[in-house]
Write a protein that binds this DNA or RNA. Structure first.
Lengths: 366, 366
DNA sequence: GCCGGAGTAGAAAGCGCTTGCTAAAGGGTG
DNA sequence: CACCCTTTAGCAAGCGCTTTCTACTCCGGC
């Protein structure tokens, strides 16, 4: 039924070995033979059998990308960037790598399941994106699985999540365990959140609400830590204790923002600013405030995080923290393909720049 | 190095065949043997070699999804929905299908390239999303390629693009060629655009601008056709000839909308409404209008298409046409897996409902 | 004019798994 | 109690490709 190497070989009057070598190009083949083979390939419209060659060569052209939700532009942008690196100038006309996108929905079980599936495909590399769930048991299981994968030759890259390892939360600096072969592209979530909060403090806000993401995720914790540290270090006047003005939404979605804002307003009607876990949540916050008859930024300032494309076009344009998602994804892709040397310490941290736009302003002075 | 079937077999004291059968589960194995095998599998942490089993069984658990740009939520939502169907209740604990997402960037060459790559992987199915480029040569090449894939057992589903085939543009009804084994989930772009335009006409608008997408795409053409037909059929007053008030943006992106709106304003300063190719373009249109000091909808009404999540939260909330992207993607996924019988004629058309929100209103009466 | 080494092609042994066929038990039945 | 059928397991032949090793041809150099 299907055309095989042998068919091509027969037609070109050579052996299968020769055809294979012409196609892979890593063995000298005389020019005349090569053209004869290529002609046979075209005439027969031959397409290599991937599984067979993966088996024989013990290699694969699949690269896994784990995301929470591919419908979320945050992950879409990263995935797209990773994928764009997969066809770079590797072999003759680019490598033939394909991106396998896995929606984990943020679930640790799914994460593990997909890793097994990718291991089964003997994936060449895997990029894990988005914050990790902070659970000792799961971390251990995840770590073990990644070790095995790495041992089997699969390159592992974390993008937008903190480096792996037995390092305890809060513990920083060089890690003790012997060189985990897992590279990381991390976001400066703490720094970004801190700068954002400082911006609000500088504007004069003192009652600042915070609609955080799901409690158990690293991203949530880091952003919150940055926020709190800015609050604590603030000199120049009394600042409302942060805790009561923090609510944890169910997810990084619009409705969490809507509900969270309502809850904050209930706790503290004199709120003058709300920080959201990310831009999508911020949109929900804005909607809730508007529904309560509050103007942005005249009555309440709002800020997001991530700087997704729609944020600049929101009305008012959203003040937020820009995460270079495309750049980070591309970097992760390069690392995954081994196309770029590992960053010092295996961890590259990308900037998180404050983008001041129209949704934040000085608080009303009444 | 890696654990193989034989290792498991040895440990369980059975033959490799038995292990294979326990794992695939489609052959009777005695209970005792099965548990013994399962234990060995767990002790050895055995993971099947996908390429090897694909080769031997001449099957694959890869499903390709071609999208223009995965960073665009339009495609992200569809891809996510397709993927969510891949783990349905197929085998014992769900099938093991993986989604290969391919960013074509809208380029016909890339499209063909990725199809070859997927053919090489012997993909179980391929879902092509988004509008097609209307070019005879490319259509023929694409069609041929899809035929070959289908002949090789790969299921092909089109999602959000018109059915394939030698049917000439504009020609409708039953197609003459013998049953293309390609299923389609189509969007009612014409109907949606028509209803949207009718809405504007009903509000009293007569000078309606249209910022269309790239000229050569089916989606662009269909939406434009719906728009024009509504204009032509309108009874109840003079309507500005549509052509001069249509501009073609470079893409379905924000900047096309911004530039397009400016161009429309230049051509017709008394414009009272602007329809955009999609929601993202609409955001750009809004930004441009605002920058020109025009209020929405008081001075100019604006409408989008697709109803992406951010549209409802835009300010003002965007009037648009809702495309059930998730539903369509899920449907496409089911069809791709053969989990659902083909729709009559091989084509399922999904609704495109008008969503009237705050960005459209009666024109000023001055 | 003979030998050694490039340069090029082929034979064949797998890669790890699936599956058709065969074989060995076990259990009813006449 | 022999026989046949059912149930369960193993044998072994591939699936289509890669790659090592071998073989051959053609040169230049001594």
């Amino acid at each position: 039924m299907a055309v095989t190497l042998a068919d091509v070989a027969a037609r070109a009057g050579v052996s299968a070995a020769t055809v294979s070598r012409v196609l892979s190009g890593n063995y000298p083949v005389a020019g005349a033979t090569r053209t004869r083979v290529m002609r046979a390939v075209e005439e027969l419209e031959y397409v290599v059998n991937g599984p067979a060659s993966s088996l024989a060569a013990a290699s694969s052209d699949l690269v896994g990308i784990l995301v929470n939700d591919i419908a979320d532009p945050f992950f879409g942008i990263i995935a797209g960037a990773v994928q764009s690196e997969l066809n770079g100038p590797d072999g003759a006309q680019g490598s033939h790598k394909l991106a396998v996108v896995c929606n984990t929905g943020g679930s640790p079980e799914q994460e593990l399941t997909y890793l097994t599936l990718l291991q089964r495909q003997r994936a060449a590399a895997i990029v894990l994106t988005g914050g990790a769930v902070e659970d000792a048991e799961h971390s251990a299981a995840l770590s073990a699985r990644l070790q095995r994968l790495a041992a089997g030759g699969t390159r592992i890259v974390l993008c937008g999540r903190p480096p792996l390892g037995p390092a305890l939360p809060g513990q920083r600096g060089p890690q003790g365990h012997g060189e985990l072969p897992v590279l990381t592209v991390a976001f400066d979530n703490r720094g970004g959140a801190r700068r954002l909060t400082e911006h609000l403090l500088a504007l004069g806000h003192r009652a600042i609400g915070y609609v955080a993401g799901p409690a158990e995720r690293t991203t949530t914790r880091h952003r919150l830590e940055g926020h709190r540290s800015a609050l604590l270090e603030h000199r120049g006047g009394p600042v409302r204790e942060a805790e009561p003005l923090t609510v944890h939404g169910g997810g990084y979605d619009r409705s969490s923002g809507y509900d969270g804002a309502l809850e904050l307003l209930r706790r503290e009607p004199r709120l003058t600013a709300v920080l959201a876990a990310n831009d999508t949540v911020a949109l929900g916050v804005c909607a809730a405030l508007r529904d309560q008859g509050l103007r942005i930024p005249e009555d309440v300032s709002v800020a997001g995080f991530d700087d997704l494309p729609f944020s600049a076009d929101a009305a008012p344009a959203l003040t937020t923290v820009r995460l270079p998602l495309h750049e980070a994804g591309a970097r992760a892709g390069k690392l995954a393909l081994g196309r770029q040397g590992p960053p010092p310490g295996g961890v590259a941290t990308v900037r998180a720049d404050l983008m001041v736009r129209d949704s934040t302003a000085r608080p009303r002075t009444d």
